[in-house]
Structures are given as structure tokens and as C-alpha cells.
Simulated scan of single mutants.
Amino acid sequence: MNKIFKISLLVGTRPNIVKISQFSSVFKEYDHFDLKIIHSNQHYSESVSSIFFTQFGIEADVILPKFNGDASAHLGHIIQYLSVELMNDKPDLLIVVGDVNSTLAGAIVANKMGIQLAHLESGLRSFDRRMPEEINRIIVDELSDYYFVTEQSGLDNLRKEGKNMNQVFLVGNTMIDSLIAFNQNIQSKSFPFEYDMNLPFLAVTLHRPSNVDNLDGLLKILALLKYCSKYFQIIFPMHPRTKKNIDIFNLTGDFENIAQVIYTEPLDYFTFQKLISLSGGVITDSGGIQEETTFIGVPCVTLRENTERPVTIDMGTNELMDFDPPKILEKLNQLREKKSQIPPLWDGRSTERIAEKLNEIFSA
């Protein structure tokens, strides 16, 4: 095979980067693949994205210009500059990751430019169209040529939607590839904060707009921390969005006055995974953390009405709940006794399967 196939891989947020940490090393094994990593600059700063690249030992080949503005305008900005980049490079395939605005922007550009599109983490559905991410997932899958799926629900959803199942591939979870590949780095990390190592702790991370962009949601978080801190230390790496809104609603003093709660800046990937692994449980509203705790076997309560990752409930250690502090602690105790399982193909080789499948496609 003499032809070199150009593959562009678009990322825009920290979770995106975690999902592609093994792509550079795996794709180097294929002489006919020329992989280029493009960062959309959706979330890029020294404290957010760049340190993840550094920890994983990878680099973005292209970083699109920075933009300050609302989400819809930012989408147009990414489309504009990504179009220029892809017009110059003319890749044979664009791979988009997850369900963020960069994912949607990449899918639109690929469609308009006639570039084949692959969606990594395809087929996940919360069935809640109030979530911007759900709209992104649906549109991206409508525009995709190839679908790389993490769990059985993704296969089921794409089949129901009438997708060509010959182009749908269950490959496992590339986020778990990162956990496995960097396990030694994770375990060797020390925490940049002091806590009582003789007392159990819960890890808390809450940042979704429905929970932190309104006074009612923040008061529920405050009540949750006050209750849980009677029984556990709480370690709460605080998202900038959460911190900003606590300040806006003049609740900073209320949060700071809760005993047994340790607030930290956002943690790097290795440190945060170490925190999860040592915790007595996690309370979150994140998507990816549901998968990480399922793999590690740590109880997780997700404060959302729904999840696009049902395998974490059916097989894993996750449970959806409302803000009911006593029931949350009770559920965490129950989950510690649950005989959970690691979902199929969450074995650290998902990136390899993607490369193998693309090799088959381009060799045909």
C-alpha cells in the first residue's frame, strides 16, 4: 500500500483529550496513516487542556485561534477556522470525539467539504433534548460515515435509528485506554492539598449548568455538603463555572464555612484519577466520571435525571439520584456491596481496534 491516508483528529475539551491519549502512538504503527491532532481551542489554557497534553506526552499539531464569546458564536468561529485548516490539508478522514460543540462543528465542516467523518463515542443517548450535548450527538451521528461505539446501548440506538450497521463498530472505551496506560503515573501522584489520611473521604465534582447556574441548584449543593461532611471528609475540585456562580450568588462564605470540606482548583488528570481511586465514593454530574468509576470499581452517584451511559448503571457502580443527602449516602453504601462488572472491551485496546478497523476500511 503506497498511498498515505491523512487523518485529522479534532479535540476541544479535557475529556476529549483523555479519550485520544493513545492515538499518536498507535497510529504510528501504520506507515500509511498520517495523523494530525487539531485542538479547536474550545477549552484551552495552561490549567485546563495544555497540561493534559503534557502529561500524556502528546502535542496538538494545530491549535485554532482563541475566541471569547457565547457558545453559538464560538461554534461559528470553530467552523470558520477549521474549514480553512481542512481546506489546506485535505484529509481523507476527520475523526470527532464525544459530544461537545467542537464535535458538532467538525461534523458540519466535514459534511460541507465532502470529507469522510468518523464519530468516536457514537450512539450514546440520554433521550433528553434539553441537553445541548444530546442535540450534538444526534446531529453528529446523522452526518457520520463511521461509528465507533463504547457500549451496547450505542449499538442498539444506532440500529433503531436506521444506521448502516456495517459501518458501526463496537470498539470499547478509549478513556479506559488512558486509565490503563497511565496507571503507574496515577498511583505515583501526591495530592497538592492536606487532608486527614486516617478518615474516609468522598470526591465531589459538580459543574453542569442545571446544577450550578441557578440559586436553587447551588443551595442544594450547599445542603448536600453540609450533610455529607458530618460523616466524611469531602474533597471538592471546583470547576471555574461552579466557583464563579457561587461568587455571583454571594454564597462563598456559606461554602467556606462548612467543616470537613476541602476545596481545590481543578486537578490534573493523574491527580484526579488518584483522588477517585482512593475515595469512598464519588458524587458527580459528569459523564466520563461515571465510566471511570465503573472501571475502577468505586461507588458513584450521578446527580442527573438521566445518563447517556447506561452500562455504568446496568453493569457498573453508578446510580442516578436527586439531591437527597441521606439517600445519597445510603446508596453509596449499597453500591460498595454491588457485584459490578467491567463492560466488554474496556480493556485498554480500544484505540488499537479503531486503527485496525480504519486500516481495513482504507485497504478495501
Rank of each mutant, 00 (worst) to 15 (best):
M131N: 12
M131K: 02
M131H: 03
E133I: 04
E134P: 07
I135D: 01
R137E: 12
L143A: 06
S144V: 05
D145P: 03
Y146R: 01
E151G: 10
S153P: 01
D156S: 14
D156P: 02
D156M: 13
D156L: 13
E161V: 10
G162Q: 09
K163F: 06
K163P: 11
M165K: 06
Q167F: 11
V168D: 03
F169Q: 03
F169V: 05
G172C: 13
N173K: 07
M175D: 08
L179D: 12
I180G: 05
I180K: 02
F182N: 12
F182Q: 11
Q184C: 08
Q184L: 10
I186A: 08
S188D: 14
S188G: 02
S188N: 15
K189V: 09
E194H: 14
D196I: 11
N198W: 00
N198G: 07
F201S: 10
V204K: 07
P209N: 13
S210P: 00
S210F: 08
V212I: 14
D213K: 00
D213A: 01
L215I: 12
D216E: 15
D216G: 00
G217I: 01
L219N: 14
K220G: 01
I221L: 14
I221A: 00
L222V: 05
L222I: 02
L224P: 03
C228E: 04
S229V: 07
Y231H: 12
I235H: 01
F236S: 03
K243Y: 12
K243M: 05
K244A: 15
N245C: 00
I246A: 02
I246L: 03
I248N: 09
